[in-house]
Nucleic acid binder design. Sequence first.
DNA 1: CCGCGGGCCTGCGCGC
DNA 2: TGCGCGCAGGCCCGCG
Length: 277
Amino acid sequence: MPELPEVETVRCGLAPVLEGAVIKKAITRRAGLRFPFPVDFSERLEGNRVIRLRRRSKYILMECADDLVVILHLGMSGRITIYKDGETAEIGKHGHVSLITERGDHVVYTDPRRFGIITFTDTKNAENHSLLKNIGPEPLGNSFNSRVLEAGLTGKKSSVKAALLDQRLVAGLGNIYVCEVLWRAGINPKRTGGSVKSNQTAKLVPIIRDVLSEAIVAGGSTLKDYARVDGELGYFQHRFNVYGREGEPCSGAGCDGSINRIVQSGRSTFFCPKCQR
DNA sequence: CCGCGGGCCTGCGCGC
DNA sequence: TGCGCGCAGGCCCGCG
């Protein structure tokens, strides 16, 4: 499911259930996802206490006592469902992992395509873990600014779309939100990164922040009851301007163009050739 | 070093 | 109804 806003929504939903909770049972129902689960998965988690949930890019970091950090990534199709104490958990065909707390809540990780990741690291080295160490600045944080973005785009021969999808330049953008960002900025996704001028780069920074934070608000506002965390909700409720709208009229003010779909490095790009130059 | 394409998986919707 | 195809929100890796 997930780009940064969906992951943040999942983190928010999960936090009240897991933070401060002691894990009573940690269950894996297969050997792994994209990578094998740690062999001591249950041993290290059972009896351990979750201190807090953090997000880094599209990863959720579950910081526990006993110098344990669980790294969780939802891949393409991963989702989390929470069953409160007394409810019956539905595991289903793809419910690969469960955490059951001493409060009786049951968290199920479901992932049909199994591109997700659940692994361990230790508190001190979490940011240097191989999965995290090359990730660029958080787009909603202070270290992301026009200077950083301009430095990242300068000289880039690949498309500006590919550049923004590169997690080393800025964290958390995926296919949907890159399309939306470029539409809002009026930048044609086929242009090379290096051809984007500095005044447009400066515009991109607040647009990236706005698109992501609006999506987080939209996702969060649909979760009246955080007992059902599901990043899909954000997508269902959020109205995209270009993503998935091939052939539809462009919603840009005064624009009479329509949305095109092209393929860039094997992935769909949606854009309006009239207002994105 | 950079940029691209392949691969990992299952499920869904479409045209025939 | 069934079958094959293309498509899907991510990311690592190997190649040129």
